[in-house]
């Protein structure tokens, strides 16, 4: 099994899914990951997803679109997605590429991402209570 077939883990903790992306993904792998996450959301009834990209040295338009698509798809499944730990060089490059990912929630690190999800979940509870 080489790095291209390595499965990206999707870890469930309480109401959340944590997805640490630690390989330079090729396009098929990115698409696979997207559907895997959506299936896991449906299966586990997770309320939020944290996607950790802190070791990714590059996010091109394909992976960028995969991530923002992921967020919109999860949103209509009533689940929030937070992209965590983007590197500064990656952020600058994405902006220059023209991919500003509007509407996608981001957090500096896992802890802040988790706080953000909790906050969202609680505001939702207050709204619906």
């Amino acid at each position: 099994m080489n790095q291209y077939e390595k499965r990206i883990p999707i870890i469930k903790i309480h109401d959340y899914l944590i997805v640490p992306i630690q390989v330079d993904m090729h396009d098929k792998q990115a698409i696979q990951l997207q559907s895997q996450i959506l299936e896991e959301i449906a299966r586990t009834r997770a309320k939020g997803v944290l996607i950790d990209i802190s070791v990714l040295e590059m996010v091109d338009s394909f992976i960028g679109r995969m991530l923002s698509g992921m967020a919109s798809m999860a949103a209509i499944m009533d689940t929030s997605v937070v992209i965590v730990g983007m590197q500064p060089a990656v952020a600058i490059t994405l902006v220059e590429l023209g991919l500003e990912m509007p509407g996608v929630d981001t957090a500096l690190n896992m802890e802040k991402g988790m706080e953000m999800l909790e906050r969202k979940l609680n505001t939702r509870k207050i709204d619906t209570y």
């Binding site: 937070v82 992209i83 965590v84 983007m86 500064p88 990656v90 952020a91 600058i92 994405l94 902006v95 220059e96 500003e100 990912m101 929630d105 981001t106 957090a107 500096l108 690190n109 802040k112 991402g113």
Partner: peptide, 12 residues
């Protein structure tokens, strides 16, 4: 403008 947008992508 780019700085502000990139900061948002980082989560700040």
């Amino acid at each position: 403008l780019k700085t502000v947008t990139a900061a948002r992508l980082l989560g700040a």
